[in-house]
Simulated assay, not measured.
Amino acid sequence: MTETRQYVDDISSSLRAAGYAVELHAIGGWPTLTGYRADFRLRWMATKLHTFVCVRSVPVVTVDELSAFATASLEYTKAAKGAMRGAQSGVAAIAVLVGETVEPAAAEYARKELVRHFAAFAWPVTVDLSTGQRSSHQGRPAIGAIYTGWMRKQIAATLPAL
């Protein structure tokens, strides 16, 4: 458990270094480390993306837990900054579950699934402390593809390698 706390502390430092405002919130009833930043890019069709990184630790990451946390993280981001979604603005949640272990089905879910709503999406990520593996979406989504490079860059910048 000490290793898990240390890794989450490392994420907090990485978030700050990457320009995120860092706070603790309850998301879906769970204590969650959150990082927030807003960025505007012309190449994103002149939109502002409100990006949240939501991090929670659990003993074992399961598909059900990852799916529920990704959905709860997306709902949190929509409530926090999603009032004007679609009017040149969107919200994204990188929903990270850090576990002492990760079930293979949960890692597969993270590699294949995104949670999407109108002008909002959640990008599930698992971190397996026992193997050092990080799993997140592979491939190029059909909807929201212009943000793919940004999301991968944020995951790399904010989730330290093990």
Rank of each mutant, 00 (worst) to 15 (best):
M1W: 02
E3L: 11
T4F: 06
Y7T: 10
L15I: 04
A17W: 08
G19T: 10
G19F: 04
Y20L: 09
A21V: 12
L24N: 08
L24F: 09
W30A: 15
P31V: 10
T32D: 01
L33K: 12
T34Q: 03
Y36A: 04
A38S: 15
D39S: 09
F40Q: 07
R41A: 05
R41S: 09
R41F: 00
W44P: 11
W44H: 15
W44L: 13
T47K: 11
F52M: 04
R56G: 12
S57D: 15
S57T: 11
S57H: 11
V63Y: 05
D64Q: 12
E65A: 14
T71P: 01
A72Y: 07
S73H: 05
Y76M: 01
A87C: 06
I94N: 09
I94D: 12
A95V: 03
A95G: 02
V96H: 03
V96S: 03
E100D: 14
E100G: 15
T101C: 02
T101A: 13
V102N: 10
E103R: 13
A110V: 09
K112C: 04
E113L: 00
H117C: 08
H117S: 15
A119F: 03
A120T: 00
A122P: 04
W123M: 12
T126M: 06
T131E: 06
G132R: 10
R140F: 07
G144Q: 04
G144L: 01
I146D: 09
A156D: 13
A161S: 12
